[in-house]
Amino acid sequence: AMEMGLACVVCRQMMVASGNQLVECQECHNLYHRDCHKPQVTDKEANDPRLVWYCARCT
């Protein structure tokens, strides 16, 4: 999947907007926009540098 680069696995886009940054699952290393992931990634989750985030598939 490395050839995908830094794109969201849901929408396949790399564009990021304020409040909709890409977050990386620490287990599978897929990237998700906060708005694309279900459930939506919260501000607290996205902005906490100590948080280890896992996508819905890996939790």
Rank of each mutant, 00 (worst) to 15 (best):
L22K: 12
T59S: 14
A1E: 06
Q21P: 09
L22V: 12
M15Y: 11
W53P: 03
V23D: 03
P49K: 12
V41I: 15
M15D: 15
C55E: 01
Y54R: 15
A56Y: 06
C8R: 01
V23A: 05
S18Y: 05
D35Q: 15
P49G: 14
E3Q: 07
P49Q: 09
A46R: 08
H29C: 05
D43R: 04
K38L: 07
S18Q: 12
E3S: 10
Q21W: 04
V16M: 12
Y54I: 07
Q21F: 08
L31W: 15
Q26Y: 11
Q13Y: 02
Q26T: 09
C11L: 00
G5M: 06
P49W: 02
P39K: 03
S18G: 12
Q13C: 06
C11I: 00
V16R: 13
T42S: 11
M14R: 15
N30W: 08
N47V: 09
E45Y: 12
S18F: 06
V41S: 04
A1P: 02
R12L: 07
P49V: 08
H29M: 07
Y54N: 12
H37C: 06
P39V: 03
H37T: 07
M2R: 09
G5P: 09
S18N: 13
V41H: 01
Y32D: 02
V16S: 12
H33D: 02
Q21H: 12
D48N: 06
N20Q: 15
E3Y: 04
D35Y: 08
C55R: 01
V52Q: 07
R57M: 06
L22P: 07
Q40C: 15
Y54W: 04
M4S: 14
S18W: 03
D43Y: 05
H29I: 02
L22A: 14
D43L: 07
A56G: 09
E3P: 02
T59N: 04
A17W: 02
W53D: 07
Q13A: 08
A46K: 14
R50V: 05
Y54E: 09
M4K: 10
V10T: 02
C58W: 00
L31C: 14
G5T: 10
G19D: 13
C28I: 00
C55A: 01
N30I: 04
R34H: 08
K38N: 04
A1G: 07
V23I: 12
C55T: 00
N20V: 09
R12Q: 14
A7S: 12
G5C: 06
L31M: 11
L31H: 14
D35I: 08
V10R: 02
V41L: 11
Y54G: 05
W53F: 10
A7Y: 06
C58G: 00
V23R: 05
V16W: 06
Q26G: 14
E24F: 02
E27V: 05
R50I: 04
Q13K: 12
M2I: 14
N30V: 06
S18M: 08
M4Y: 05
H37W: 03
C11E: 01
C58Q: 01
K38D: 15
A7G: 06
A1Y: 05
K44D: 15
Q40V: 09
P49A: 10
C28D: 02
C58F: 00
C28Y: 01
D48K: 11
A7P: 15
V10G: 04
C58D: 01
G5Q: 15
C55N: 02
L6I: 12
D43F: 07
L51N: 05
C36Y: 01
N20S: 10
C8L: 00
L22R: 06
C58A: 00
P39L: 03
M15L: 11
R34G: 15
C8K: 00
Q40H: 09
E27S: 12
Y32C: 04
D48M: 08
S18T: 13
R57P: 11
H29A: 08
A17N: 12
T59L: 04
E45A: 08
A1Q: 14
H33K: 02
M15A: 15
D48W: 06
H33E: 02
H33F: 00
C36K: 01
D35T: 13
S18D: 14
Q40E: 10
K38C: 08
V16D: 13
P49C: 03
V9A: 10
N20E: 11
M15G: 15
C8E: 00
C8V: 00
V9F: 08
S18V: 07
A17Y: 08
R12Y: 04
C28E: 00
C36M: 01
C25Q: 02
G5Y: 03
N30D: 15
R34A: 09
G19A: 10
K38P: 03
P49I: 12
K44P: 08
G19Q: 05
E24S: 04
L6W: 02
L51G: 15
V10N: 05
G5K: 15
E27Q: 07
A17H: 12
D35M: 14
E3K: 08
G5W: 03
M14F: 09
K38F: 06
A56T: 09
D48S: 07
C11V: 00
M15Q: 15
A1R: 09
R12G: 13
V23M: 11
R50F: 06
L51R: 14
H33M: 00
P49Y: 03
A1I: 10
G5L: 04
N47M: 07
R34I: 11
T42F: 04
Q13F: 02
V23F: 11
C28Q: 01
M14S: 15
R57I: 07
Q26D: 06
Y32A: 06
D43P: 07
C28S: 01
N47R: 08
Y54C: 14
A56N: 04
V23Y: 10
T59Q: 05
M15C: 13
M2Q: 09
D48L: 06
A46G: 11
D43H: 06
L51V: 12
C36T: 02
K44C: 14
V41D: 03
A17M: 09
M14G: 15
V23T: 05
R12T: 09
C36E: 01
C28A: 02
V52D: 13
V10E: 07
E3W: 02
K38E: 12
W53N: 07
T42W: 05
L51I: 03
T42I: 03
V41A: 04
W53Q: 04
R57K: 11
A56R: 07
V16C: 10
Q21Y: 07
V10L: 06
W53K: 06
V41G: 04
R12I: 01
D48H: 08
T59I: 07
A46L: 12
N47L: 09
C25S: 01
A7N: 14
D48Y: 05
C8A: 00
T42N: 10
T42H: 08
Q40F: 11
T59P: 06
Q40Y: 03
H37V: 08
T42D: 07
C11G: 00
L31D: 03
L6Q: 13
N30A: 13
C58Y: 00
N30E: 07
L51E: 14
M2A: 06
V9L: 04
V52L: 11
D43G: 09
M14T: 13
N47E: 12
E24C: 04
E45L: 10
Y32H: 03
C8N: 01
Y32L: 06
R34W: 15
V23P: 02
R57F: 04
C28L: 01
V52A: 13
V41Y: 02
H37N: 06
C11P: 00
T42E: 09
M15H: 15
M15S: 15
R50Y: 08
C55L: 00
P49H: 06
Q26F: 09
M14I: 13
C11D: 01
V23K: 05
H29G: 11
A17E: 10
L22I: 10
A7V: 08
Y54F: 15
Y32V: 05
E24I: 02
L22M: 12
E27P: 01
A56P: 05
C11K: 01
T59W: 02
P49E: 13
L22C: 10
C25K: 00
H37Y: 04
C25A: 01
D48F: 03
A7L: 09
H37K: 02
K44N: 15
M2T: 15
E24Q: 08
C25I: 00
A1F: 05
C8G: 00
Q13S: 10
G5I: 04
E45N: 08
G19S: 10
E3R: 03
E45S: 09
V52P: 13
V41C: 03
R34Q: 15
N47D: 08
M15F: 09
H37M: 13
L22T: 08
S18H: 13
M4R: 13
A7I: 12
Q13L: 08
E3D: 09
C28H: 01
